[in-house]
Design a protein around this nucleic acid. Structure first.
Lengths: 199, 199
DNA sequence: CCTACCGATCGGTAGG
DNA sequence: CCTACCGATCGGTAGG
């Protein structure tokens, strides 16, 4: 029953989840290779051998963080894509959803690790991530196609998609929440940079 | 005299330069933290203690690679910015120059290390890099201003500049020389994505 | 999940 | 630039 999985959520300690979150924060901050098991253990007040009760290897922690990041972004943008609004409004909602995951408090460490540390994954896991990413990017390709059919954009090619995702993903390098701009404002600005004016 | 510095260029071995190039390639491939001194030494056929005859620390090798990357990109784009052509042609030349450094054989390892491993630099060196980057990005800001004055673009804000550089820098993640597209083609495509049609 | 530990590897150095 | 080496640290494990 679900009862054993979700009791009083606040009480039930989830040490595995704690480790994944701590690992995500440290991987995002210092990089996978420069983060030690002792860093992660210390962040969740464990001894250095204890994380291995929850994960077989350090690599498995990276895998968990990256897959969590990919799943969260995919879910957020997929939902935004289904709102059934106009192509322009849908596109803006997708931009907001993607940026919320990259820049918001819940998702940013997972996203940053996904974007910057995936090369340290084993080839097999990397293939797993690539497959998810292909599915994800296909959503954006479709959004571009819809925008073109609506006459809002001139170029819906693959390269256009890659430029768009580059502009989005690079925000991780410069966006600061205290910089006076909200994520929604950033999304709107990119939208109006790419789409024809509302006329 | 310069004679002692530049004799018969081909003969004169430059072991320090060899180390910087090898370090750049390895840092770009595996990341700074995951690259060992023994990797670098092996790549230039030295014993593991010998690189320290040329560099005091591993960190100093990273510094050399990153500053070389920054200097090369800055020089290439500065030259493209000074050709005295139309705003559109100048902008395209700058795009090409930036992408040539990121994706071409000579510069890509330095550039990739600059873009992805700078966080491992000491704060003092990081400040040095940031200062150079600010100067560099100011060139792009000016290019956007010129494009706006020429009526070729609607938004020449700071955020627009960051989106542009994001689209450019992200090419490192997906561009493959054997993919059938030249760097010049990529540059032109980004240009026509951002600027008003030639009319 | 802790205690106690291991073998391997790391950046760096002394002396030549 | 090599030889020979050092202390520190790393990921991971056995046994409880």
């Amino acid at each position: 029953m679900a009862a054993s999985k979700r009791k009083a959520v606040a009480e039930e300690p989830n040490r595995r989840g704690d480790i994944v979150r701590a690992a995500g924060r440290l991987f995002a901050e210092k990089g996978y290779a420069a983060t030690t098991i002792r860093d992660i253990a210390g962040a969740v007040a464990m001894q250095s051998g204890s994380p291995f009760y929850h994960f077989k290897t350090k690599h498995d922690m990276l895998r968990a963080v990256v897959l969590e990041g990919m799943a969260a972004i995919d879910a957020a943008v997929a939902q935004a894509a289904q709102t059934g609004k106009s192509p322009r409004a849908t596109f803006e909602a997708m931009l907001r959803a993607h940026l919320d995951q990259l820049l918001g408090e819940e998702g940013r460490d997972f996203a940053a690790t996904l974007l910057h540390e995936s090369r340290h994954l084993d080839p097999a896991v990397q293939a797993e991530v690539v497959a998810l990413k292909d599915r994800y990017e296909a959503m954006w390709q479709k959004a571009l196609k819809d925008l073109k059919q609506a006459g809002l954009i001139a170029d819906d090619s693959h390269v256009a998609r890659l430029f768009l995702l580059g502009a989005l993903n690079w925000t991780v390098q410069w966006y600061r929440p205290d910089g006076g701009k909200s994520v929604a404002q950033i999304a709107r600005q990119l939208s109006s940079l790419l789409l024809k004016p509302v006329s």
